[in-house]
Computed example of a mutant assay.
Amino acid sequence: MTEILRVENLRVEIKEETILEGLNFSLEEGVHVLLGPNGTGKSTLLGAIMGLHKYKLSGKIYFYGEDITDLTPDQRFKKGIFLAYQLPPSVRGVRLRDILKKILNIDPKKELPVEIYNYLKSLDLDESFLEREINYGFSGGERKKSEILQLLLAKPKLALLDEPDSGVDIDSLKLIGEALRKIAKESNLLIVTHNLKILDYVAPDSVIVLLDGKFVYKDGLEIIHQIEERGYNYVRRLVYAQNLS
């Protein structure tokens, strides 16, 4: 199976505070779930892979074998990486319609393609949603749906999803889950989640557990049940035994 992402000895700092240190792991094609205790650095890891400017990095990040460590977020987006934020930022003065045209790389004066209106319908969004300023005054569910809409159009090689199921009601979760199922047919996914209900819609090929910003444990779906029964200290013991060997 093709390797899509490799992280080697990754260290990430924010304002001189070390959040991640010495991380090493790789991902193959497919759907992957990233778990870990609160505050362990999961969102930071996604942001580092995307190359967000607030992070100071050392180590290496490879995407389909290419070193992207020094590329800007825009350059990484053009390579096929898309980040859906846990708390998508608001942007005053920029309509959702404008962002979608930029993603599709079409003339701002031209009309949006028909597929966008089909996606709006599938997410239970009115066409007037396109005229609203990016995430300004959006509910939690609307913010998530806006990001999923952009993701559907971007069709990236790798989608980084930071808790796509947080702050949404049951009906919205169902719509988002069904959209992710569709996206997973065309894109590789790395999903951070605490609500494992999202796994009813997308079955992961592997589960990655991030511990204390330093250790990564990778396994199959069965590790989720072990975590639910025994907690993350169980995984810490596995990592300790793995390091000893």
Rank of each mutant, 00 (worst) to 15 (best):
T2S: 10
R6K: 15
E8N: 06
I19H: 12
I19S: 11
L23Q: 04
F25Y: 03
E29A: 14
E29Q: 13
L35A: 13
G59F: 14
G59H: 13
F63T: 06
E66Q: 13
T72Y: 15
Q75V: 04
R76P: 00
I81W: 08
A84V: 01
Y85I: 05
Q86W: 10
P89F: 15
V91G: 08
R92F: 14
V94E: 04
L96P: 01
D98L: 09
L104Q: 02
L104S: 04
N105G: 02
E111S: 13
P113K: 06
L120I: 02
S122Y: 08
E127V: 11
S128W: 00
F129G: 02
F129S: 06
N135L: 12
G137V: 05
S139M: 07
I148V: 13
L151N: 03
L153Y: 00
K155S: 03
A159V: 09
A159N: 12
S166C: 07
R181D: 01
A184H: 03
K185V: 12
E186G: 02
T193K: 10
T193Q: 10
K197P: 01
V202R: 01
V202I: 07
L211W: 13
F215I: 01
F215Y: 15
L221N: 09
I224W: 06
I227Y: 03
Y232R: 09
Y234V: 09
V235Y: 12
L238T: 02
Q242L: 15
N243K: 14
L244A: 15
